[in-house]
Design a protein around this nucleic acid. Structure first.
Lengths: 198, 198, 198, 198
DNA sequence: CATGAATGAGTATTCATTCAT
DNA sequence: TATGAATGAATACTCATTCAT
């Protein structure tokens, strides 16, 4: 008789997640074509075949990683933040504090952000799926920018450009986190300066 | 066969440069492992074998590209700029204007900057070679930052961090130039804001 | 656990036979290299591992199947038939009737015959083991052919060739039985005509 | 400059045919799953990669072989034969003579016939393509059978069954040709006896 | 010199077999 | 004992490199 069927499913789910999470960082650091299944398996600490028990192919694994690393939750949080009855200045501050904090503590957060780039770098097609959430993230940020502009605390210019600039800098330091051993993280003020009026 | 021997060399040099320049952009966009020689040759419009007439291997081609895309000239220019008897504010302005200008007009400039990242992303070893010039670039920029700090026009903090931040943003928009079709370029003011005091 | 020890053995023997019989047909239809253990297990309705409880390897299973599907009993029957004090014509008739009858009713009989082919097709080495009985089958058949030739009812020619021809046709319709859904079975007369004189 | 472009295409076509022909016999003898690309390449005397220059995959190679080994020409010939103003007896004689003659001399003919079986054995889907011509072959043969029945020289029964029986025997000896080293080929009379009335 | 077909080392994927439960 | 997830050796397939033309 097999193990308890529920426990069994749990274990399978666990392994799948293990592969998914470990691969995410590996792909983020090495790119799709730079990642060999044999190396990846060794890195995860499993046999090559095991990967194929859970995923049909290298490509499919990559797609699944991508689904997993969606900005869904972040968008929800940002939506709430943007709707709060506080000044844009305060919103930006809260956002910057949260983002830089996670960036410093959570390598997965950095990986998630970097992966989006891999996708661009490797001209993948999954972008569309991802782009939706990324766009929402930008839109809510842009809204805050507009509020800030009305309040006179954020520089003039296309609010979308500003949002793009702001998140671009975040992405920049995600890359640094992932690929550099020694680097100086910017401060909250540094980040805010990209968009705040003097 | 025995055409004019000089003309012959010229022709050779021409083809070599053609390969070198076209490959630079291709590598910048696709990464080292993401680039297949067969695709590259098709992109350049030559036979695969031709590449091997001028370069020993894919790796060697990449190294040669790297030598070509050195910051040597830029360092020289920056050195001169940093030594000018003008305010840091003005130096930053001149630098930003020049950099953003080239970024907008010259895809090769964007490619050169992006390549440095490929190297980091793919954990290559040539970094040492490259790092030397990159470091000098950062050092001269840091010097300007320090001057600016003394003049009270540039924000406090490690001058190296500021230089790194400044060039990071430049790199960010080099990527956008290379990989995005529609994007809004930042203005000189946007770029300067990363480091200028209000 | 310690049920009746005999009953236990019985159960084991049952499972072993289940695997053996089901595999026989599967191998006969798909060939040795065309059979995946995972598919076979699914077809039988058991886990992959279970097969390895009863058989050391895919190869060993195949050998065991082969032992099981020996012509031993058929040879014995044919020996008796060939020794009967009746005309070759009658012997051939009895044989043809029996063979075509079994072919129509018993898929295992068809499978047994087809398997011999797999062995030839896949150039296995077990042929030697099998060949012995097959040879005897042919020899007793050839004897009947010779009797028939003396009686003037069977066509001239090498008696072995005729036996080979006769069983070849039987094999042909074993294949049809196994692999075809709609086909017309030959009659006893059709089969006899291959060797009978007009 | 490359070789003369026409000569080049010729050479390519030659290699493609070389692979196609050599593979046909190899597949016929070893089956689809029993054929390793590495072994096949060694057998042909080329590098493994070369196969992939001409064919997308093992499966595609197999399909191409199948297209090549169609009964197209045979059907045409048989159509002409069936329309000749001679007796069915004579037609059958001409056909049997031709078929057994080719079988003895031409291994490719045997391979072609055997391949059809591989397809059945391996339950492929290409059968449909092949089946068309096979069916025509059977239909023209059945016509001759009907003529023979009217002329009283061919045994009674479904003409299609007789055609199927006749070609079945041919297939049987194609297998013997391919897989057996020592065997006795049947004579024209042996073959004809399957269907001729005494 | 330029080419692209041929090659085989390297990489992705499959599948017989093991083993913890 | 029965299972099916895990494994790695075996196999299919890719791609940098060579070489005859």
């Amino acid at each position: 008789m097999p193990k308890s069927p529920e426990r069994c499913k749990e274990i399978k789910e666990e392994m799948r997640n293990k592969i998914l999470h470990a691969s995410m960082l590996y792909f983020a650091k090495n790119g799709f074509s730079g990642t060999k299944i044999s190396d990846l398996a060794k890195y995860i600490g499993i046999g090559q075949g095991t990967i194929y028990v859970y995923f049909e192919s290298k490509e499919e694994l990559f797609k699944e990683i991508f689904k997993m690393t969606t900005y869904e939750k972040d968008v929800k949080d940002l939506k709430i933040l943007s709707a709060l009855p506080i000044s844009a200045r305060q919103k930006i501050h809260k956002l910057s504090k949260a983002v830089l904090g996670r960036l410093e503590q959570d390598e997965y957060f950095a990986g998630k952000i970097a992966l989006n780039t891999q996708l661009v770098l490797e001209k993948s097609d999954y972008i569309t799926d991802a782009a939706t959430y990324q766009l929402e993230l930008y839109e809510y940020t842009a809204k805050i920018m507009e509020q800030g502009q009305r309040e006179g605390r954020i520089v003039e210019g296309s609010s979308m450009k500003l949002a793009d600039y702001y998140w671009g800098v975040v992405y920049l330091y995600a890359l640094k986190k992932l690929f550099t051993t020694k680097y100086e993280m910017i401060t909250i003020e540094d980040l805010e300066r990209t968009i705040l009026k003097k």
